[in-house]
């Protein structure tokens, strides 16, 4: 029986990692742009990104753009692999659920 990664299997983190997966591991996205796409508050997004960062699925880096500090977020190869495994497990579990229904 496949298992769902508990770090990813929560709505906000799932939305965040799905979006970061679309950005790709060779690019990083500004925190503010990610926040706008996800329509989450900065606090909520920070909390969930920290959990994804602790699991090694994303990296958060700080930089200075002009005179303004900016935060960028990127998915790691481990994060991409974990998200792909999560999607695969999810589809397998839904297939099992469908076939087991009377």
């Amino acid at each position: 029986m496949p298992e769902l990664d508990p770090v990813i299997h929560a709505e906000s983190r799932l939305r965040a990692i799905a979006t970061l997966n679309e950005v790709g591991e060779r690019d990083r996205i500004a925190f503010t742009k990610l926040q706008k796409i996800l329509e989450m508050t900065a606090g909520n997004l920070s909390t969930h990104l920290r959990k994804l960062e602790d699991a090694g699925y994303v990296t958060v880096s700080k930089t200075i753009e002009g005179r303004t500090p900016a935060t960028y977020v990127a998915i790691t190869p481990e994060g991409k692999a974990a998200y792909a495994a999560y999607r695969k497990a999810l589809h397998e579990m839904l297939t099992i659920e469908l076939t087991e229904k009377p």
Partner: peptide
């Protein structure tokens, strides 16, 4: 905080 585990169909919709 969006930290609740999802049911499978909801997870698929979120993805």
């Amino acid at each position: 905080d969006g930290d609740r585990p999802l049911d499978l169909n909801a997870a698929l919709s979120v993805v």
